[in-house]
Simulated scan of single mutants.
Amino acid sequence: MVPSRKGLARILYAARYSVFGLRHAWKQEAAFRQEIILCAVLLPVVLMANVSGLERAMLFGTAILVIIVELLNSALEAVVDRIGLEFHPLSGSAKDMGSAAVLVSLVLMAGVWLCILL
Score class of each variant (00 low, 15 high):
M1H: 13
L8V: 14
R10L: 15
R10Y: 10
I11H: 03
I11V: 12
Y17N: 09
S18Y: 12
V19Q: 08
V19T: 10
F20Y: 15
F20E: 13
R23C: 03
H24E: 13
A25I: 00
W26K: 03
K27L: 11
Q28S: 10
Q28R: 11
A30Y: 05
A31L: 14
F32Y: 15
R33W: 04
E35M: 08
E35R: 11
I36T: 11
I37C: 11
C39I: 06
A40Q: 12
A40P: 01
L42P: 06
P44L: 11
V45S: 09
V46M: 07
L47R: 11
A49C: 09
A49E: 06
V51R: 07
V51H: 01
G53F: 07
G53Y: 02
L54H: 00
A57N: 03
M58K: 13
G61L: 04
T62V: 14
T62W: 06
L65Q: 09
V66G: 01
V66I: 08
V66Q: 03
V69Q: 09
E70I: 11
L72E: 02
N73S: 11
N73P: 00
N73G: 06
S74H: 10
A75W: 03
E77Q: 12
A78Y: 00
V79Q: 05
I83W: 07
I83D: 04
G84P: 04
P89W: 10
L90P: 00
S91W: 07
S91I: 00
S93Q: 11
A94H: 09
A94K: 06
A94E: 07
M97N: 10
A100L: 12
A101P: 00
A101K: 07
L106M: 15
L108A: 00
A110Q: 06
W113F: 09
L114A: 14
L114Q: 09
L114R: 13
L114W: 13
C115A: 15
I116E: 03
L117K: 11
L118C: 10
